[in-house]
Amino acid sequence: MDNVYVLGVDRTIEAEARIERLMLEHQTKLARYLRRFVNEQETALDLVQDVFLAAYRMLRADPNRPLTAGWLYKTATNHAISLLRKRKRRGESLPFDDTGSAFRLDEQSASNVDLQSALAALAPEQLACVLLTAYAGYSSAEASLMLGITAEAVRQRVCRAMRTMRRTLEVKA
């Protein structure tokens, strides 16, 4: 079996088993979080796959590394932020009428679609703070560790995001 270990086979199998467990536990929450973030179902699914592939690569390199939900959310947030920035750089944006369309199949409520539109109007960094705290249920201290900023900065961004969202929702109303 030593030879097998040297070839890295058991390490790979172990990493695969851990990824499977992590996916069963976290994939639904992570996919919903990312769908809120990027406002597109298919893109969210792609991002979830990317996150778990990144986790697999990390586990293959270091099987003993602890991998928490926080790490998954942090990686997912970074992927989503860079995707939104890339879209902005390219000048790509969803038409305003399509905003929230990813949710219309299972959430027919107009107010929820309005809420999603208001979220889509936020800057990616503010959106990350709002979703990590209000939607994913992390505290500002935990969110600050994931985003690499201070807890005060998270609170400030949430405050500014709420101000922007309130304006957007008032306009829609």
Binding site: T28, A31, L45, F52, E107, L115, M162, R166
Partner: peptide, 18 residues
């Protein structure tokens, strides 16, 4: 808006199988 977001999290039914 934050409270509605928290409620939405609990109401969502989408369950992707990836």
């Amino acid at each position: 808006a934050l409270r509605r977001l928290a409620l939405l999290r609990d109401e969502e039914t989408w369950r992707p199988a990836l």
